[in-house]
């Protein structure tokens, strides 16, 4: 992968995008009737399905109950056919457990859990096809699912990955870029207040570039939030037409 040119001299990336351009985001809400909330989201070739159950009474060990807010239970899994090599375990390995933890943390910050004391909210996310930016796609899908379930949130949570190549930040990395040795930063943002719900970065990056990178990630997240907002509004319109209001 070493010889791969991630950003051409003309300023185009491997898949023909500009540096700050996001991949195409397509989403649908309410894809399952059984669940309280569900959503399907495609970001380029990365596809994710999110399902939300709750808020409901605590299941399993009651000792985890919190008297002042709801607990959020997240499970992240990848379909065995989601990557180029077939995955043996869809969930339960270290990376997926960590991803579940991060999702949980992101939504604990965003969902108004104090409205539902002694209860539990389950968020299940499954990656159907993986092409980079798994975390951010999961967060975006789960946000739509939580909204579909009617659980109040402080704001949309939008996530995006950003890479850094030739002194230029690249928004919304695909798999080829991610594995090409780019230092990447994943950021989950509540766009209205500019608050960062989760920040994660791998690989080396000089301190001086951090600010530009975070800045670029925030802009990208705001772009995602616009798309999500549109999806929600469109979904509501469809539903209201169906119910005859």
């Amino acid at each position: 992968m070493a010889g791969l040119e991630l950003l051409s001299d003309q300023g185009y990336r491997l898949d023909g995008r500009k540096a700050t351009e996001l991949r195409k985001v397509q989403a649908r809400m309410g894809v399952f009737a059984q669940a309280d909330g569900s959503a399907y989201l495609e970001q380029g070739n990365t596809k994710a399905l999110a399902v939300v159950y709750g808020p409901h009474e605590m299941r399993g060990s009651r000792s985890r109950t919190l008297h002042d807010r709801a607990i959020i239970n997240c499970q992240y899994s990848m379909a065995t056919f989601s990557t180029a090599e077939r995955k043996r375990r869809p969930h339960g390995d270290r990376k997926s457990t960590e991803m579940s933890l991060h999702l949980k943390q992101t939504f604990e910050a965003a969902v108004m859990t104090q409205l539902y004391p002694r209860s539990q909210i389950d968020i299940y996310v499954k990656i159907l096809q993986s092409d980079g930016g798994n975390y951010s796609v999961c967060v975006n899908a789960a946000t739509l699912a939580v909204i579909d379930a009617g659980i109040p949130m402080r704001d949309y949570v939008c996530a995006c990955t950003v890479g850094f190549v030739d002194e230029t930040p690249l928004a919304d990395l695909c798999y080829a870029e991610e594995s090409g040795g780019v230092s990447s930063l994943a950021l989950a943002l509540l766009p209205r207040g500019g608050q960062i719900a989760l920040l994660q970065m791998d690989a080396r990056l000089h301190q001086d570039h951090l600010e530009t990178l975070i800045e670029a990630a925030m802009t990208a997240c705001k772009g995602v939030s616009k798309v999500l907002d549109e999806v929600v509004r469109q979904h509501l319109q469809e539903v209201s037409v169906l119910t005859g209001e």
């Binding site: 608050q195 994660q200 690989a203 600010e211």
Partner: peptide, 23 residues
């Protein structure tokens, strides 16, 4: 590392950070 290169960043716990705080 001592060359002022950031090797990893990870936030945890349900808090909202602002960019300035991170910087």
């Amino acid at each position: 590392n001592k060359h002022r290169e950031i090797c990893s960043i990870q936030s945890s716990g349900g808090i909202m950070l602002l960019k300035d705080q991170v910087m």
